[in-house]
Design a protein around this nucleic acid. Structure first.
Length: 660
RNA sequence: GCUGGCGUGGCGCAGUCCGGUAGCGCAAGCGAUUUGUAAUCGCUAGGUCGUCGGUUCGAAUCCGACCGCCAGCUCCA
């Protein structure tokens, strides 16, 4: 990491005279060892450690702790140790690139989740074919086991050292400004003459790097700023052992196997015809069933929870979006205006103003509140071309959007209701243990400070009362109010932001929403915006990846596939199909003139939960032969038993398949 | 929007570097086979090689612009 934190000094070394004041090294077995005076922590650590924590601060093994310091070893198994390993891998990558391409200018290269990257300015673009060469150069550096050494330089020395490295110089210069004092010391790590500006800590030497692999090349802006030069970023991953690297690479393959765009085609759920334009999907017949299941579930649970369903059009006059503030802030992300008889219309990017107008359609009393207006509202946002990503980021999508309009004193109670509904709905899909974030006022915002403070207070007290643990994301709120987001982990551990709950005092103000109170005075209500699934498209994409296409039975487009062995079994299969449909199940019969093997394969590829092969034996006995989508096969299952178990599985929205 | 890569029948790909008017597998249609749990065999049809323009005797192949897709960055009410 670069200078984002205080420099960790290597020589605070307070004089130590007494044995009892010597640094104490805490060992994993809970015993302690004392270090001799002036001794670096590395010399006393058990082998295999890559860094140490001294009084809670991560340092490298050459660090000489002062008296009374508490020293703990850090191994690569420790998350911090893994970070150190990857940070060192980033250095080795940069060193290798500089060796192969002497004109390369290196920028920054931090460890990240699962790996590391380094940004370069290069004379010409790299291709994936260059990666093996770079990896080879990295391996040479690892083989020569170069020690990492830490030095502190004065500002001018550092500028001189990085004379040919404009990015490094910029960092040194800005560091200086930030610290507000000339002559600030700058930390540099070197190995074999190659040097990088860096706080460390690092591995003792390059030989301890473990298993690594370069993964991809991409462009990235210097300092993440669109107006600054585009650099070449090389991504890699690094792990303590080859097994862990292999595991990780398998996880990547698994994620690719689950890609919703691939499965969407394979399962014939949806497509993005280029004729429609970027980010606009059509749902196919099977996708239509899946989606209807989601919609029905969501609508019904909202009705049960006291929401009322409303419906709004897809376009509205420009004036509406001026009042809401969307035009001022998001005009370039809205589809362009269409003009009709001198009036500008816009396609809606949001449903809120419509729900506000439902509220305002007549004079409201405190008795009407809370009013919970709900709509599966289809909106269009002109997302920048490069950000569109299948269903996960589309340009046309349907939000499970609701607005709760209530008195301020009802707000916390309403928020608690939304949290509760969120957990119930998400649990239905197997999502639990959310990571919750409270986002506060962003730089560009409407509404005064007092409004924001009250809104944040409400969210905070609802969170506190709910018992949910949450973190605070400063400045990440919506322009009209703070929000609470729920992120959930999928089946392979990836975190997705699904639910968003936003508190809004601003729109009621802008739209002059009012109600008459018990006191016969006019009051302003507050509004909660919330989408629990987020959008049906995005949520569907996440579900497809979460389940890897193996939907719970209630969501599966076709739940049972009947495979007659020969033409003469069609009639019996037809009879079974009628009984299954009577039980509310979705059934298909494969009457193609193919072998049983081929038909079974077909059903398997389509991930149909249950396949029943119907032949002479079944026609005679009345039993069925059940094959599930994992390939488990059971013959002689009573048909009534099958129908009973499977309809039960579907109606309870079970996450577990029945086994026979 | 930016950087890089890619675009060849419905799908997955070869051919592009070194210009000489397209090929494979799956899917589809037809025929034979009537089949017992992940691909039966044969035949047939299907492509102005993303679009437009340029270079050339000749362009899928070389050049340019545009459109679309992919990865990352930036953004995300």
């Amino acid at each position: 990491m670069l200078h984002t934190q205080e420099v960790v000094g290597s020589n605070p070394a307070a004089p130590t005279n007494y044995h009892s004041h010597m640094p104490r090294l805490a060992l994993p077995d809970a015993s302690t060892v004392e270090l001799a005076e002036g001794e670096p922590v590395g010399s006393a650590l058990p082998p295999g450690n890559v860094a140490a924590r001294v009084d809670g601060e991560l340092v490298d093994l050459s660090f000489v702790p002062g008296a009374d310091a508490k020293v703990e070893p850090v191994s690569p198994a420790d998350p911090d140790g893994l970070h150190v390993l990857r940070h060192s891998a980033a250095h080795v990558l940069a060193q290798a690139v500089c060796k192969l391409i002497p004109e390369a200018r290196y920028a920054i290269g931090p460890p990240i989740e699962d790996g590391f990257y380094y940004d370069f300015e290069l004379p010409e673009a790299l291709t994936p074919d260059d990666m093996p060469r770079i990896e080879d150069a990295m391996r040479e550096i690892v083989a020569s086991d170069q020690p990492f050494s830490r030095t502190e330089l004065g500002r001018d020395e550092a500028l001189e050292l990085f004379a040919g490295q404009p990015f490094k110089r910029e960092i040194v210069e800005q560091l200086d400004e930030a610290e507000g004092a000339a002559g600030e010391r700058v930390v540099v790590y070197r190995n074999d003459g190659w040097a990088d500006l860096c706080l460390g800590p690092h591995l003792p030497s390059t030989g301890r790097l473990g298993a690594f692999k370069l993964l991809s090349v991409a462009g990235a802006y210097w300092r993440g700023d669109e107006s600054r030069p585009m650099l070449t970023r090389i991504y890699g991953t690094a792990w303590p052992s080859q097994e862990e690297l292999d595991d990780y690479l398998h996880r990547l393959e698994e994620a690719e196997r689950r890609d919703h765009r691939r499965l969407g085609r394979q399962l014939d759920l949806f497509s993005f015809p280029p004729e429609l334009g970027t980010g606009l999907a059509v749902w196919h017949q099977r996708g239509g069933i899946f989606r209807k299941q989601l919609e029905d579930y969501v609508r019904n649970i909202h009705l049960e929870r006291g929401y009322e369903i409303v419906q709004s059009p897809h376009i509205a006059r420009g004036k509406l979006w001026e009042t809401s503030g969307h035009l001022a802030k998001f005009r370039e992300l809205m589809y362009p205006a269409m003009e009709d008889e001198g009036t500008e219309y816009f396609v809606k990017p949001m449903n809120c103003p419509f729900h506000v107008l439902v509220y305002k359609s007549k004079t409201r009393s405190y008795r009407d509140l809370p009013m919970r207006l709900s709509e599966l509202g289809t909106v269009y946002r002109h997302e920048r071309a490069g950000v569109v990503h299948g269903l996960l980021r589309a340009r046309g999508f349907t939000q499970d959007d609701s607005h709760i309009i209530c008195r301020e004193d009802q707000l916390v109670e309403e928020l608690l209701g939304v949290f509760d509904l969120t957990l119930e709905i998400q649990r239905t899909f197997g999502f639990a243990d959310p990571v919750v974030a409270l986002s506060t006022k962003p730089g560009e915002a409407i509404g005064d400070e007092a409004m924001w403070a009250r809104a944040i207070d409400a969210l905070r007290s609802a969170l506190d009362r709910s018992g949910l643990t949450y973190e605070v994301a400063e400045g990440e709120g919506a322009f009209y109010g703070p929000k609470v987001d729920f992120h959930f982990r999928d089946a392979i551990g990836r975190l997705w932001q699904l639910t968003t709950i936003q508190c809004d005092f601003a729109l009621p103000e802008r739209f002059e929403m009012e109600y008459t109170g018990e006191d016969n005075e006019r009051h302003r209500p507050v509004m909660v915006h919330r989408a629990i699934l987020g959008s049906l498209e995005r949520f569907s994409g996440v579900l497809i990846e979460h389940y890897a296409g193996d939907f719970p039975l209630w969501l599966a487009p076709e739940q049972v596939r009947l495979v007659p062995v020969a033409d003469r079994h069609f009639e019996h299969a037809q009879g079974l199909a009628v009984r299954l449909r009577d039980a509310g199940l979705r059934v298909g019969i494969d009457k193609s003139k193919e072998t049983v093997g081929k038909k079974v394969r077909e059903a398997q590829v389509m991930k149909i939960p249950y396949t029943l092969v119907v032949g002479d034996k079944e026609a005679e006995s009345g039993d069925v032969s059940v094959r599930d989508r994992d390939g488990n096969e059971t013959r002689g299952v009573s048909f009534d038993e099958f129908v009973r178990r499977v309809s039960d599985e579907a109606s309870t929205r079970s996450l577990e398949s029945s086994s026979f």
